[in-house]
Design a protein around this nucleic acid. Structure first.
Length: 755
DNA sequence: TCAATCCGTATC
DNA sequence: ATACGGATTGAC
C-alpha cells in the first residue's frame, strides 16, 4: 500500500506545475483518463449533471473521501473541470459525489490519467483553494494511519483543524494585502524534501523497532536553501552561543547538538534535563539554532502551562512573537485555524503546541522536539490513538531532520532509541548533576512512619517535617506532592498497606464518602469490622488522601504558614520566593522563583502499587518533575522504601539508569516498547468475530480476554512484527466493515494502559 | 404479475 | 454509511 504517500514527488511543486507550457501531449478526445469520447459526450445528455469539460492539464484528482469505513481508505479519482483546474490543487478541500451522496474530501494529488476502469465523476465543488494538506503531512498521516491500523481520514481529522472561511479570507492571501508581518512573503507551501528512501516498512530505519541506525553525523543533503531565504528568517533576533557552563554548554554533547541544528544536519538526541533546568529556554535555543540555519522547528509539549512557558521563552529568544505560531486546542476554532494557516502558509517558521501540533505543517523542517514524552497527555484519545512522540519520530524519519526528546525523566521508548543507536544521549556528567541536584532523603514508607515518634502528623515523617521547617525558616517555599485523589479509589490497611478486600467476595473496598464505612465495590456489602489478613491491623485508610485534606493537615502541622494548593481545579503557574507550603498533584507543580527549599513526595506507594506496566517509570517521572524545581541546596524527601530501584534512581537523579532496567524488564516480558501490542476491545461476540477474520502475523501471541467496561472484553495481541500486525488488523477491520452491522471493535496499538 | 422487502455489493 | 440491483416472498 502506501501508493499515495510515497513517490509522486511533492505535489506542491504545483507552483510550477500548472503553468508549465507543456507540449500538450494529450490531444482532445485522446485523454487517457479512462473516459472514452463517446461516454463523455453521452454523459451530460443522459444525466442532468452540469456540462463540464475536463481540465486540459492533469485532469484527474485523487481524492481522500471523508467516510469512516476502513475498506474505503484509499484514494478515489475524480475529473477536474476546466473551471476548477487552477483551484483543485493538491491539498485543497473538495466536495464530491460518492456512492450517491455528497461528502467532503481532500485532493491528494493531480494526475494525468486514472487507473480506474469505470467512468469518473467530476468534483462537485472546490470548497477552498487553500492547500491545507501538504504533501509531507499527507505522507506523515498515511504513515501514522498505517502504524496505528487506522484510516487516513481519521488521522487527517487530527492533523487539520476545521476550516473557518472568514479567517481564511481575512488572514488573506498575501496578495490581498493583509496585516501579515511579511508582505513580501510568498504564501503557499514549498517544494519539500520528500525524496529519499521511503522509511516505511523497512524495519531497519523504523525508530519503533529495535535495530536502529544512522548516527547523527549523517549530513543532510542540503537543498532548498534558496527557498529558505525567501522565508522570514532571523532578522532582529539574536542567536548567541550561551556562555560557558550555561545553557546547553552544561551538557557535554549540548553544543554539538546546537551546532548540528544550525548547520542543517539531523542530530537525534534524548536529552535528560539537569535538575533545576530552565527547559523552555533550552528548547527555545534549539529552535532558534535551527532557524538560524535556515530551517523551521516544531516543538510539542504536554499541556497549556508548559506551552505558555515555552512561548514566553521563544519570545525572549527571538525578540519577536511573529516568527512562531502557538497551536493549542484551547483557543477557539477561528483562532485555531488562523494559527494553523500561519504555519501552513510558511509565515510561522517555528511551531509549538500540544499533541495535535505534531502534525502541523512547518516549512523546511529542521527539528522536531518533544518535552516530557512520558506524559499521558501526549497520547491522543481519538482514533487511531497516535502518540505525539511516535508521530514526531515518524516525521523525523520522513523529513530527515533533527529530533530531540527531552525531559527530567526518561521514557522506556526514549531509552530504546538510545540503545538502538537511533538517538544520542544528551545528559549532564555525573559530577555536574550531583552539584546541581538537591539532596534527596528517603523517609521509609508509611509502615515505619506509623511508628515514627517524631512524626508531626500521621503522614509526615520527622525527616520531612524537619526539611520543611528548615526551608521555611530560610523563607523559601516548600512543595508537597500528593497523588491525585481518585487515582486509586480504594482503601488499604493503615499498618501494612495491603489492599483491603471484601470478606464475602474478595472485591476491593472503597470509601463512598469520608464519613461512611467502606463498602465492597463488587458486591456492595459494607465492611463493618475489618481485620487485615496480613498483619491483623484493624484500621483502614484511604489509599490516597487528596490535596485539600493534605493541605489541612499541613496547615495544622505548620501553624501560621500560608498554604496554597495547585491541582485539578486551579493550577498555579508560579509561586513567589517566600515561605509557604504549596500542595500539588503531579503535573500541576508551580515553578518557584529561585526554587523550592524543600520538596516532599508523599503517599508514594499509591503510585508504586498501581497495577500498571508503567507504574515505576511514571512514578519517577513525576517525582523528578517536582524534585527538579528544588534549589540546588534544597532537600527532597521521598516517603518511600529506600531499597527500591525507582527510589535509588531519584536519589541519584539518574532516570536513564532506571529506564535501562525497565527496558530490560520489558524485553523479558515481551511488552512495549520491546514488542508491539495491540488491544482489541468490543463485545465478546465482536472480538471473537474479529479474531476469526484476522490473519495475524506468524508468531503473534494472544493474551486474554479480560473483562473491560460495559459488557465488553479486551484481547491483547503481542508480536515483534509491528508493521505486519498493524497491516493485518487493518485488513481485518476492512473485511468486517464491508459486512453490514458488524459490531465495532476498537483497535489500539501500544495503548497507554496496558495491564 | 406486481410490489414490498431482504441481502449483497460498490462507492471514482 | 447509503444507494442501488437482483433475488425472494407475499398478495391480488
Amino acid at each position: 500500500m502506501g501508493g499515495v504517500s510515497s513517490g509522486k514527488g511533492g505535489a506542491f511543486e504545483q507552483d510550477g506545475l500548472l503553468p508549465v507550457p507543456d507540449g500538450a501531449p494529450n490531444a482532445p478526445g485522446d485523454r487517457p483518463d479512462g473516459v472514452s469520447a463517446a461516454t463523455r459526450r453521452r454523459a451530460p445528455a443522459r444525466t442532468k449533471t452540469k456540462v463540464s469539460t475536463a481540465a486540459e492539464h492533469l485532469p484527474v484528482a485523487r481524492v481522500c473521501v471523508d467516510v469512516p469505513l476502513p475498506h474505503l481508505d484509499r484514494p478515489f479519482d475524480y475529473l477536474v473541470s476546466a473551471a476548477d483546474a487552477d483551484r483543485a490543487l493538491p491539498g485543497t478541500r473538495v466536495r464530491v459525489r460518492f456512492g450517491g451522496q455528497l461528502v467532503d474530501g481532500y485532493v491528494l494529488d493531480r494526475i494525468e490519467r486514472s487507473e480506474h476502469e469505470g467512468r469518473l465523476a467530476y468534483l462537485d465543488r472546490v470548497v477552498s483553494a487553500e492547500p491545507v494538506l501538504h504533501p509531507e503531512i499527507l505522507a506523515l498521516c498515511r504513515d501514522v494511519a498505517d502504524r496505528y491500523a487506522g484510516t487516513l481520514t481519521d488521522v487527517l481529522r487530527l492533523a487539520i483543524p476545521p476550516r473557518h472561511a472568514r479567517v481564511e479570507a481575512a488572514a488573506g492571501r498575501p496578495a490581498a494585502g493583509d496585516a501579515s508581518p511579511d508582505p513580501d512573503e510568498t504564501a503557499g507551501p514549498d517544494p519539500d524534501e520528500t525524496a529519499g528512501p521511503d522509511p516505511d516498512e523497512t524495519a531497519g530505519t523504523d525508530p519503533d523497532q529495535t535495530g536502529g541506525l544512522s548516527p547523527d553525523e549523517t549530513h543532510r543533503p542540503d537543498q532548498g536553501k534558496a527557498v529558505a531565504t525567501r522565508r522570514p528568517a532571523l532578522s532582529g533576533a539574536v542567536f548567541r552561543t550561551p556562555a560557558k557552563n550555561e545553557g546547553w554548554a552544561r551538557y557535554p554533547a549540548g553544543e554539538a547538538l546546537l551546532r548540528a541544528l544550525a548547520d542543517g544536519r539531523m542530530p537525534r538526541a534524548v536529552w535528560t534535563a539537569m535538575p533545576g533546568e530552565d527547559w523552555p529556554a533550552r528548547l527555545a535555543e534549539a529552535a532558534v539554532a535551527t532557524l538560524a540555519g535556515g530551517r523551521g522547528a516544531l516543538v510539542v509539549v504536554a499541556d497549556a502551562r508548559d506551552l505558555e512557558r515555552l512561548d514566553a521563552a521563544l519570545v525572549a529568544a527571538l525578540g519577536t512573537a511573529e516568527l512562531h505560531a502557538v497551536l493549542s486546542a484551547a483557543v477557539g476554532p477561528a483562532e485555531r485555524y488562523r494559527r494553523f494557516l500561519a504555519a501552513s502558509r510558511g509565515q510561522a517558521r517555528i511551531v509549538i503546541g500540544t499533541r495535535a501540533a505534531a502534525f502541523a505543517p512547518v516549512a523546511e523542517l529542521g527539528l522536531v522536539a518533544i518535552w516530557d514524552d512520558g506524559d499521558d497527555l501526549h497520547a491522543e484519545p481519538r482514533a487511531p490513538y497516535p502518540h505525539a512522540r511516535q508521530v514526531l519520530l515518524a516525521r523525523a524519519e520522513l523529513a530527515r531532520c533533527g529530533a530531540l526528546l527531552g525531559g527530567f525523566g526518561r521514557s522506556t521508548e526514549a531509552q530504546q532509541l538510545v540503545e538502538a543507536g537511533w538517538a544520542h544521549e544528551v545528559v549532564g556528567d555525573r559530577e555536574a548533576v550531583r552539584r546541581a541536584a538537591p539532596r534527596v532523603l528517603t523517609a521509609g514508607d508509611d509502615a515505619q512512619l506509623a511508628r515514627d515518634p517524631g512524626a508531626a502528623s500521621a503522614r509526615l515523617p520527622s525527616v520531612a517535617w524537619q526539611a520543611a521547617r528548615e526551608a521555611l525558616r530560610k523563607d523559601a517555599p516548600v512543595l508537597v506532592q500528593v497523588p491525585r485523589r481518585g487515582y486509586l479509589p480504594s482503601v488499604a490497611c493503615a499498618e501494612c498497606h495491603t489492599p483491603a478486600r471484601c470478606t464475602a467476595c474478595a472485591g476491593p473496598l472503597t470509601l463512598p464518602s469520608s464519613s461512611a464505612p467502606p463498602v465492597c465495590r463488587w458486591c456492595g456489602r459494607p465492611a463493618a469490622d475489618f481485620a487485615c489478613p496480613e498483619c491483623g491491623g484493624r484500621r483502614l485508610r484511604a489509599a490516597v488522601v487528596g490535596a485539600r485534606r493534605t493541605a489541612e493537615e499541613l496547615a495544622r502541622a505548620f501553624p501560621g504558614t500560608p498554604v496554597r494548593t495547585s491541582g485539578r481545579d486551579g493550577v498555579l503557574a508560579s509561586v513567589p520566593a517566600e515561605a509557604a507550603l504549596v500542595v500539588t498533584t503531579p503535573g500541576a507543580e508551580p515553578v518557584a522563583a529561585g526554587g523550592y527549599g524543600a520538596v516532599l513526595l508523599l503517599d508514594t506507594w499509591a503510585l508504586l502499587t498501581r497495577a500498571d506496566l508503567r507504574a515505576t517509570e511514571e512514578a519517577l517521572r513525576r517525582w523528578l518533575a517536582a524534585a527538579a524545581l528544588a534549589r540546588a541546596d534544597g532537600t527532597v524527601v521521598v516517603v518511600a522504601d529506600a531499597s527500591l530501584a525507582v527510589v535509588q534512581a531519584l536519589v541519584r537523579f539518574d532516570p536513564g539508569w532506571l529506564a535501562a532496567r525497565e527496558l530490560a524488564d520489558r524485553r523479558e516480558l515481551g511488552f512495549p516498547p520491546a514488542a508491539r501490542v495491540a488491544s482489541l476491545t468490543g463485545t465478546p461476540a465482536a472480538v471473537a468475530d474479529f479474531l476469526a477474520v484476522v490473519t495475524l502475523p506468524a508468531g503473534a501471541e494472544l493474551l486474554g480476554p479480560v473483562p473491560a467496561a460495559d459488557d465488553q472484553e479486551r484481547m491483547l495481541v503481542r508480536t515483534r512484527r509491528g508493521a505486519a500486525l498493524a497491516q493485518a488488523l487493518r485488513a481485518a477491520a476492512g473485511v468486517r466493515s464491508t459486512r453490514k452491522a458488524a459490531e465495532p471493535v476498537r483497535i489500539q496499538i501500544d495503548p497507554q494502559d496496558l495491564l
